[in-house]
Design a protein around this nucleic acid. Structure first.
Lengths: 136, 136
DNA sequence: ATAGCACTTCAAGTATACTTGAAGTCAAGC
DNA sequence: GCTTGACTTCAAGTATACTTGAAGTGCTAT
């Protein structure tokens, strides 16, 4: 089975090695084996785990939240209802985020249009537009 | 012109009053007038400003970043190029976030499908599906 | 008029997530 | 064999964004 050094994982996920050690200490990365000299050995499982961590982090979950979820997943069968409940909640949360960001993009594009108009007006030495023109 | 108390703003944006005072201290909310007894009076301008703050925060900007941006906007005409550059960068960043979240939603939906299949299998006392079936 | 509550300032405290530093180990190249 | 660089542990430090506490002021209802 393919294995990875801490440096490879670090580059793969754009996370400093110290953060990977920290995640392990916090219980997010479990069963990280060592070489005889003590260096960490990561597997595909850890890559899958880190993908989930990054996904959860983007969703705004704390390390503690993520740790709790992984702990539930360790006993998938007995905790299946709780796991599903969390996942549903999480999905709803992400859908809301999607809407927020979509709205924010509209907001930014308005701001850009307004400032581009100002720039153009300055370049042409014309009268400056008012924010109202862009909001109405 | 319509004005608002700190409580009204607090409720409108779902932010504690202490946070509004903090934002003012950090220079994000400027020109907040006071009643003769010293209580804050907010205007529509502050609402617009807070909308931008929330938008920028969702985008991952720090208080310092936001403060810098507002400072540039105070001299809109002289800083127009810098403002536009920041806005373009910000838009690109938001578009990336949108993609990430879209990908994350797919990830979550896969996880949900997998756990729903497990739940179903448990209920029907059938053999449990493997994660592979859902990833291939 | 007095109790209560919402506000005020200012300083200090807290939570989260890392990050850094010190001191040491190990493998590889010159 | 000795330096160099990447790793290790463990403890302490830092950054960011609030949050809380203390002490005081001023409307508002009983």
């Amino acid at each position: 089975m393919k294995t990875y050094t801490i440096k490879e994982i670090s580059q793969l996920f754009q996370l400093p090695s110290s953060t990977l050690r920290y995640y392990e200490e916090m219980g997010l990365l479990k069963n990280v084996d060592r070489t005889p000299s003590g260096q960490r050995i990561y597997t595909e499982d850890h890559i899958g785990c880190l993908k989930a961590i990054c996904c959860f982090k983007r969703a705004g979950l704390t390390i503690t939240d993520i740790s709790r979820f992984f702990t539930l997943e360790d006993n998938e069968f007995t905790n299946i209802d709780e796991i599903l409940a969390l996942l549903y909640k999480h999905r709803t949360h992400m859908e809301q985020k999607l809407e927020e960001i979509t709205a924010d993009l509209i907001h930014i594009n308005e701001k850009i249009a307004y400032h581009e108009a100002i720039k153009k007006a300055i370049a042409e030495n014309r009268e400056l537009p008012s924010w109202r023109e862009f909001m109405d």
